[in-house]
Nucleic acid binder design. Structure first.
Lengths: 216, 216
DNA sequence: CCATGAAATGAGAGTAGCTCTCAAAAGATG
DNA sequence: CATCTTTTGAGAGCTACTCTCATTTCATGG
């Protein structure tokens, strides 16, 4: 059904990490990517709103039901990329005596770097499209804000642990979510400038507007 | 159609400010309030998701079309309250030589105070319900985040003016949105604690985690 | 007080996102 | 190869939301 061999131009190929998975799992990954590729292509052609899930399904050679089985909502097809675990790991790997803000800076920089070098080819291309959509399409921006708040909780937990606070401590929560808001705005700023600025530098400037979070 | 005299128990009555408006305008305010009251009542009875726009229309004695004519989306029925102009005015009224963070603190406090004393009776009641919805219903939270980003732009412009920066300056934008993110988290924290904490105090603690925004 | 114009409403059809169910197809397993 | 499990497709159904058009309701000037 979702065979991406031959005719269909799949920009994304099955990652190495999945080679040893059963046929079933591999097929699932294929379908997933077929849906995402179809979506990106259609959006580039017609824009986000004009692209219906039915069209996506058709181009990906799956049924509409399947699309919703893989992605809970249309916006999620565009936004699905999970760097949260990576960020969390990087953050926890920072030395415990390093200033919190500096740890954040390093972890975020490294996470971005990894994301880009992971697959520089179209990964960056998709990042730019995603950034544009984030600025232009309210639904996408909304969804991204939601996912940012998830990342915020994650950061919150990590920072709470680091500074010896409860993860429900107002200050940590507020600090983390403030950070996320600022970083999201940074992305928007970057996207509005057609992604020409140096993102890591923008992030540095962003973090510079924050206090360090003191330990307890 | 939307007569709220007699049987219908309208918790909200036509505000004084509208007395001199034509019959047409007054009726519009009435329907608007009828829709909101119906919505709040139904949500209290059945929850947000179980409440359909059709039900709302029926109880407000209005057609579904009219509901959508008054509110662009279902979530907006719950969230429509515009304190933005108030906040902007208060912020601009602060002395120009006051530290930015202190101005923000005062302006926000006063805005909240005004909002509450304006109509303490059910205004607070609705605020609590709204806070709960914000925590429980993703759509509502999403919508609120959107409106927060509008407020953020507003704050951004005011702060840019105050500190002699361009309103597109990365630092001001990031600072403003960081603030909004933090304040939203404060509201969530407050709502999670069943609105028992002293909100102004929480806001103070929140702002205390921020640097002051330096002038240019 | 009525006639004319403007605005608000209701009715209804239509679209699209999303859910749920159930039977058929495809992969895993012994 | 037979059986069990997972995945899929087909389709019905719900609801938020949009658009159009005829009807009603208010505003205004004579």
């Amino acid at each position: 059904m979702a065979d991406n061999d031959g005719m269909t131009t799949a920009r994304t190929s099955v990652p190495e990490a999945a080679r040893h998975l059963g046929l079933r799992e591999r097929k699932k990954l294929k379908t997933r990517m077929a849906i995402r590729d179809a979506t990106y292509a259609l959006i580039k052609e017609q824009g986000y709103d004009a692209t219906t899930v039915e069209q996506i399904a058709e181009r990906a050679e799956v049924s509409p039901s399947t699309v919703f089985r893989y992605f809970p909502a249309k916006e999620d097809i565009v936004l699905t990329d999970e760097y949260d675990p990576l960020l969390e790991r990087l953050l926890r790997e920072r030395p415990a005596d390093e200033p919190v803000l500096e740890s954040l800076r390093r972890a975020i920089r490294e996470a971005m770097a990894t994301a880009l070098t992971d697959d520089p080819a179209h990964e960056q291309d998709e990042m730019v499209l995603r950034a544009r959509l984030m600025v232009e399409v309210p639904q996408v921006r909304s969804r991204l804000m939601e996912s940012m708040s998830v990342t915020g909780r994650l950061v919150c937990r990590a920072l709470a642990e680091r500074t010896g606070r409860h993860e429900n401590d107002l200050e940590v929560r507020v600090y983390s979510m403030g950070l996320m808001g600022a970083l999201l705005e940074t992305m928007i700023y970057w996207a509005e400038g057609d992604c020409r600025d140096d993102l890591p530098e923008l992030v540095d400037r962003t973090l510079a507007t924050f206090k360090d979070l003191p330990r307890r």
